[in-house]
């Protein structure tokens, strides 16, 4: 599986381009055992934009996120039906990936679709080894290439300046916000196209949150980002598109500005105004 993704290093402003759909979801149903977590959900996630999933707890937004890179495989009793595809574009020679295909190369998928979790979860290794973990698994790299890659990733994740003097110190010695940025660096070190973020700031203090939000804003020029958040301000601050979920259904999806200022549905309106949730 070798492919060239010129999109990644193109520094052009994605806002100027028309929306290209990268992830296409159609009539998706998902279950945990007998409990149906997602009902008939259809949604398009645009390329090189930040898409935010909002909604009250248990509405299925995390479930959907985890289906995008099949993290649900390890959950006993989790299954899904419908269509969830990552589509290619003309400049990219990869064909469409049917994510729900049982025979899919999950490893390849997860390399393309990285994920960052709610709580920072660096491995109990050195900072360097954390970032190098993915590349070591997937690529044949020389020592210098790996050094370069680690530096690049840490710079991308805006944490390089803080850690460059202690690359071989333990990752667990970093602060929460640094740890989370390290996790982002770790995720982008394998060169993904999509970054999934599951409430990446909910375990962080406000200043760290701000740093991460800035980072997300930076990263969207090169990555397609899907972010699950409870934080309405966060969604409105850093996302281009917002999807509102309620009880396993997609209630409304659209440009962020529209969802927050002119919601089409009453439930959305109630939620963004803080009437429930």
């Amino acid at each position: 599986m070798s492919s060239v993704t010129p999109a990644i290093d193109s520094e052009q402003n994605s806002d100027a381009l028309p929306d290209q759909t990268l992830i296409h979801i159609e009539k998706l149903n998902a279950w945990y055992g007998d409990f149906q977590a997602i009902h008939d959900l259809s949604l398009d996630i645009p390329k090189h934009k930040v898409t935010a999933f909002i909604g009250p707890s248990g509405c299925g937004k995390s479930t959907l996120l985890k289906w995008i890179n099949r993290m649900n495989d390890v959950v006993p009793g989790a299954r899904a039906k419908g269509r969830l595809a990552i589509t290619g574009d003309a400049s990219n020679d990869h064909v469409e990936i049917d994510v729900l295909d049982p025979g899919l190369d999950v490893v390849g998928l997860r390399r393309k679709v990285g994920i960052v979790f709610q709580k920072p979860n660096p491995f109990p290794k050195s900072i360097y080894d954390n970032v190098a973990f993915g590349p070591r698994l997937h690529m044949k790299t020389s020592k210098s290439e790996l050094d370069e890659l680690v530096e690049w990733s840490l710079q991308k994740a805006a944490v390089w300046d803080e850690v460059k003097d202690r690359l071989h110190g333990p990752a667990l010695g970093l602060s929460g916000g640094q740890q989370q940025r390290l996790c982002i660096a770790r995720a982008i070190a394998v060169g993904p196209e999509v970054l999934l973020m599951d409430e990446p700031c909910s375990a962080l203090d406000p200043s760290s949150t701000l740093a991460i939000e800035d980072l997300i804003f930076e990263l969207r020029t090169q990555y397609t980002i899907v972010i699950v958040t409870h934080n309405m301000q966060q969604a409105s601050r850093c996302s281009d598109k917002t999807a509102f979920f309620f009880e396993g259904r997609l209630i409304e999806a659209g440009p962020t500005e529209q969802v927050f200022t002119r919601p089409q549905q009453k439930q959305t309106d109630d939620y963004v105004r803080g009437k429930f949730g």
């Binding site: 890179n69 390890v74 998928l109 390399r111 973990f133 996790c183 394998v190």
Partner: peptide, 10 residues
């Protein structure tokens, strides 16, 4: 930690 590793495609 397991999730992190799996998420990186391990």
């Amino acid at each position: 930690l397991r999730e992190a590793s799996m998420g990186l495609g391990a």
